[in-house]
Structures are given as C-alpha cells and as structure tokens.
Design a protein around this nucleic acid. Structure first.
Lengths: 199, 199, 199, 199
DNA sequence: AATGAATGAGACTTCATTCAT
DNA sequence: TATGAATGAAGTCTCATTCAT
C-alpha cells in the first residue's frame, strides 16, 4: 500500500482532527483545512469519511501487528514480550500521541458501533495475539494458570489502556524517563501484584 | 431529585438507545419511540439531547459515588474495599448492563470531549476516591509503596474497565457465579500479580 | 364587550409581552406566565394567539376611535382638534407605553402582513378620520389647500408616530411637562413650519 | 465588499421575500426558491437567516449613508439638503420599492428587538446625521430655533417614513412626476407649515 | 489533480394547540 | 375553571457527498 505525498498529508491531518474532536464531531472540511487543501481533493483520494477513518485505523493496526507478531514469534521470555508491548504502546504515545488517541477514543470503544466498520474484529485480533502470549507464559510456568489467559489479557491491556487514556485526557507529555517509570509500574503490578511483598 | 413516572420512562429509554447506538448516532426521535411517546414530550421534560444525556450520567455517578463513599469510610480492609468496587461495578453490569455501557462507551472516553459536559470532572473524582483508598492501603502496609498510588489506581480501574468493555462488546450475559469468578480473577491479578507464585 | 377580571389580566399581560418582544417572538406560555396562570387557561378565554392579539388591537382602536370621533364632531377649531390628537396619543404613551408600543411596532407596520388580520383596515379608518379633519380645516380656511389633505395627514401622523417610536426605542419616560413641550413642538412645526418666521 | 453573482441573486431574492412577508414569516426555503437554488446554497454564502438579513440591511445603509454624507458636506443650502434627503428616499422607493419596504417594516421598527442586530445603532446614526443638518440650518438662521433640532428631525423623518409606509401598504406605484409632487408636499409642510399663509 | 459551488437528507428544536383530568 | 401533559407541523441549520469546471 504505497501512499503518495498527498495521501500522507491527508492521513496525518485526519489523524489530528479525529483525535481532537472524535469521529462524529469531525467534518471533512476540517480535515481538508488541516491538510491545506480543498475537501474535494480529499474525496479524490478517499471515497468517504468512513473509508478515510478506516485507512487511519488500518495504518495503526498494521504497525501494531507488525510489532506484536515479531514480539510473539521472537525468542524473548514472556515477561520481555509483555514488557515489549507496554513499551511499544507508550513509545507510540510519546512519538505520535494522536495515533494513540484515536486508538483509545474511537477504536477501543467506538468499535461497539457499526459492526466491524470501526475495527471490532481488529481489536479481537489484538486480544488474541496477546492471549497467545499469555497462554505461552502459562505453559512455560511463568504465569499463573489458575486464571484464564483471557482474563490476564484483559487486566493487562486494560491497565495500559487506562494509562494512555488518563495521559491523553490530561494532555500529559511523555518522555523517555517517564515512559520508563510508567512501563515499569504497569509491569510490576501486573507481574507481582499490588500487594506489598513480605520481606 | 424525584422523578415522575414519565421521566423514568424517558431515562430508561434513553439509556437503552444511547447505549445501543452511542451518543452521536442516537436521535431524539429514537428515544421517544423507544419510550412510546412523541418527541415533543421528551422535550417537555428534558431541555435537549445534551441535558438528557447528562441526566443519565448524573444518575449513574450519583449511585456510584454513594457506593464508593460508603466503602471508603467503612472499616473494611483495603482489600475488601477494592474488592467491593469490583463487585459493585460487575453487579451493576449484571443488573443494568446498559448503564455500564453508557459509562464505558461515552463517559470513560467521551469525557475527552465537550469540556466537562460529559463528565470529565466526575471521572476525576472517581480516580481521586480510588486513589485515596490506595494511599490508605499503602499507609497501612498492605499495598506496595514503590509505585505511586495513582499508578495503582490506573491499573486497577483499567482492569475493571476493560473487562466491562469486553463483556459489553461481546454482548456477554452476566450471572452471579460468573461475576464471582471474574471478580476474583481481577482481584487476584491486581493483588498478587500474574506471575505464578513459587510453591 | 364586558370583560371578566381574568380576561383583563390576560390582555394586560399580553400587551406587556407583545410590546416587549413583538408578535412573532412572543410565546403563549410567556403571556400565561406574565398573567400568572397556565397557558391552558389563556386558551379558555382566547381561541388562539391571533385572536388574542386582535383583542388587544381592538381595545386599542376602540379607545382611540372614541377619542377621535368625539374630537371630530366637537365644535373645537381644527387646530384644537389636531392638537387633541397629538395630546391623546402622547398621554396614552405616558400612561400605557406598552399600548403605544404595540401600536407602533406591530400595528402601524405589521399591518402589511396577513391581509387585515392585524389591522390594515383599522389603520385606514384612522387615516380617514384624520383626513376628514384636515379637509374640514382646508374648507374653513385654516389649512393650506395647495396640498392634498391626505398628504397633510401623512405628515401629521408620521410626525407623531416617529416621536413615539423614538421614545419607545430609547425607553424614554414621559411626564406632563415633557409631553407639553413635545406636543407643542410637533404642533408648531406642523402648523407653522420649520422655517424661522421673519420678524 | 465585492459580491459574486450568486450573492447578488440571494440578496435580491431575500429582499423580495423579506419585504413581502416580514422577517419572522420568511423561511430560508422561500428565499432559496425565489433565488432558484437549494437552501443549502444560501447557507453556503450566508451563515444564517439573521446574517443574511443583516447583509441586506448593511447594503441599504451603506447606500443611504453615502448619499447623506455627501449631502451633508456639500455646499447646498439647508433647504436643498433636506429636499435632497426626501428625494433620495422617494427615488429609491421608485426604483427599488422592496428595499424601502425592508427599511420601513423591519428596520425602522424592528430595531427595537435584538439589541443592535437589526440596526438600532445605524438608525441612530441616521438621526444624528439629519440632526446635524438641522442644527446647521438653525445656526445659519434658516430654521427656527425655538424647537430642538432633534424634534425637527423626528417630524421630518417621520413625515417621509409615513409616506413611504402608506405607499407600500397601498402597493402604490411611483413615478417621476408623482415623486415630484409628494416631495414638494412634504417639503412645503415641513418648511412652511400646514397653515394657510395669509395673503 | 484540484476547487468549491451545489444539493438535499436528516437532525434538532420550538411552540401553538388540544385534551384528559 | 384550571392545569399542564401530550402532540406534531414546521422551521433552522449541518454536512457528507457529487460534479462541473
């Protein structure tokens, strides 16, 4: 899927506006204005608003899956893999907060709407991939197996998701050291629990 | 805030439709139809769509805060309090899934929009209440204090939120025994971590 | 046309609200609120908004005609009669500014609309009565007859009308001495002209 | 303020419909139909009904002020200047009766409403300009100064206004010779008074 | 490629009026 | 008499989308 310069412009602008206003409150004209072109031209490249949104979502998932898959098949330990996911998501937030914003606001929730038009299936695939890593971790004895792998997945992804949400909500800036601290916090709680270990 | 029968009708119908279609895709006419009345009557009771939505949100938070506050000030242990929150949210889901749906879809995300009109401040208060319980837990030595209380809060609420989201997404039915199992799963992971305890 | 207390309440309230907001921007509910009753009751006495408005207009014209007719048939001089009209209108403004406001805003202009529903014919009758006085004045040699009586009428009524409009616009309060001065100003210009008389 | 052809179309159509039905009873759809286009297009050019109306009013005043200012600063006598104003207004009526109609029906009265949105301030400026001419006339000894300049202004403008109103009401057609006669009638009464001069 | 004029479905909302109580 | 719940016609306005240029 090679993109022309124009297409990249549009996607970038759309990302910004969708993440700022949400899908419903975004007008094609806003996106065009943000991209510095007429809205007619946006239609030249993207059939309609829905398709444009999907293109963004597509981009997002494409990158995410690439990362996830490579993590999954790699020979890292389960802990490393899961830390890798946390790290990946937080680093995307650091570099492209709008993209995460779309993910959080429209995809991870909006998916309820419109059958699959806004990514329900894709979201399911994320869960699946993650769950497979969990199952692997249970099989190799690292993770507890008195709790279903999918439950572990929910807790895990939910934690990250809420962190991201809160940061987006608060308009918080991210930087490498902060990311380090947060990543570690999520990982620690997830792996060892919130209860203070007995000395 | 005493409500007439009609007002209850409307709120109930609105809850159903908003949770089914999301705020943006809900028409006042749909709500009126669901409530079996003309849309004019809806306007007789609620100034406009936004205000009607707010009334629902208000109801939700009112109930939630009541529960949370009573949990917070009670003399239960930190663990019991946190389990109480999990239990409360899952049980509301069991009894009134639409209400949780609104919470998850529109409030916990939509709050980004519209300044506070969709509950950003209220959401903040939830976080605060929860964080205070965490701080108490840290003070009394139950919870680890190498991780900020607000981070613990995020992981905790994020886990529950994702569970709820996934169940809503999947249209899953809840029942008491299932609720028990899920509650326990979330609590276990949160308290003891996902790592398999060494025997 | 005997009116009950209730009917007088309504007319008074309607007068106030119509004059404040204009016909189109007045809601039946506003009138009812102003009258301290439910709008259902307003309908009990007046068939609809149009009819209620007409009743007010009717009242207004009834009083005005009574005055005009009595002036016309009286044995006062033409000058006295015309001064009488000026005086009457200004004194009504002093006592019931809302009533004049209705006259000015809705009747003297709004009459263009709705065929006769808002008083076109009545307005014509005012012109006629006034013109007859002018004609009489021309006949008895007081008024110049190189100008059509109806033109004199327009100038005469137009002057008063504009005074009233400006006062209403400015929210100006009227009192006896002021009324005296204004009456005299209008009369002087109308009778002797604005040009400075040669000494 | 250069206007496209379309904008002129719209203004013209709006002028016609507003003057025919009044502001409140004019629907945007009517204007669009009159202009032979969809109502969407009207909104493409004018933000909303209020703004469209304002644009018309703006146009009207712009032309009027241009005339008035040039009259005021010219070196004509006071009498010529005032006759100039009468002539201007009547000639506009002759050429564009709708425009005068708007002025008379909605501006010169409707200004009471909506703060300034319908031209209260502009109307005040007209009074001021006219009053300045009156004051000049008083200073140079042409006009009587036992009557306030603003009172002279009211009588003067009121006379013209009523003529215009009556003609609009009667749907009267204007032509050059008639205009001549009316102009002269207004001027004569205003300058020399309605009283028959003693021979 | 590019523009933005043009269209019209559709949503929100108002408010006169009716009517059961 | 009196109330205000209930209805629905009608109007304003938005905005995705099409299309001539």
């Amino acid at each position: 899927m090679i993109k022309t310069e124009r297409e990249k412009n549009i996607i970038e602008a759309a990302l910004k506006v969708f993440s700022r206003n949400g899908y419903a409150d975004t007008r094609m004209a806003d996106i065009a204005a943000e991209a510095g072109m007429s809205y007619g031209l946006v239609y030249h490249y993207y059939q309609n608003k829905e398709k444009l949104f999907e293109a963004i979502v597509e981009d997002w998932w494409a990158g995410f899956y690439r990362e996830l898959e490579s993590l999954k098949v790699g020979d890292a330990t389960t802990e490393e893999k899961l830390r890798g996911i946390i790290h990946y998501l937080l680093s995307v937030y650091e570099k492209k907060p709008d993209q995460i914003s779309i993910f959080v606001i429209e995809i991870s929730r909006g998916f309820v709407d419109h059958a699959d038009s806004r990514g329900k299936g894709k979201f399911g695939r994320l869960f699946d991939l993650c769950r497979e890593i969990m199952e692997e971790g249970q099989k190799n004895g690292f993770l507890r197996n008195d709790i279903a792998a999918r439950y572990l997945t929910y807790v895990f992804l939910g934690s990250i998701d809420t962190f991201l949400s809160v940061m987006i909500l608060g308009g918080e800036k991210m930087n490498a050291s902060r990311e380090e601290r947060i990543s570690d916090g999520i990982a620690k709680v997830f792996f060892q629990g919130a209860v203070k270990p007995r000395e």
